[in-house]
Amino acid sequence: MSCEPWQCAEIAATKKANVIQKPEIAVAMMKRAQHPILIVGSNVTERWMDGKQAIEYIIEFANASKIPVVATAHMVGEFVKRGYTPAAYWNAMEISQRVCDPTWMGLDGKGHPDLVIYVGMPYYMEALILSGLKHFAPDLKTMTLDNMYHVHASWSFPNASLEEWAANLKVLTSKYSGGQ
């Protein structure tokens, strides 16, 4: 199983993400978190698996897991179009700056997120954001659900094909009741 960064030049990390070997591990961490949020970027309408866009897999996962979704870029409209209303929408940097700030009390004002999950941003941009969080919010746990290994996250899946990604997302969803 490869743990190289997806984009080959993204290697300048002394502290590298733990590899999520199986989706079940990710689910266990998500279930343990009190205030997880899922930040979804613009590539989810660009990636197709089995005739379905990645955003549709994410909606299924979000519906099952009930993890609040933050849509970045112009994705809010894409979610709403598909009948799913995200908990919030923000610019990628705006939301990331807030999760980096320990005094920020989360989307609902009830507590700072203890697990921030990213998926679907341009790889290099998500990598930089995760680096910012690694350095400036060292106690925050970060995870990515992408099919691309992100060195700067706390937890990342390894590089995988689109088919494997779809399979992983389906397993993630299936581990929640109602996600079958």
Partner: peptide, 11 residues
């Protein structure tokens, strides 16, 4: 306007 840093390199 506060800086939000995203280091490209850890070192």
């Amino acid at each position: 306007y506060k800086p939000f840093y995203m280091p490209d390199c850890d070192s």
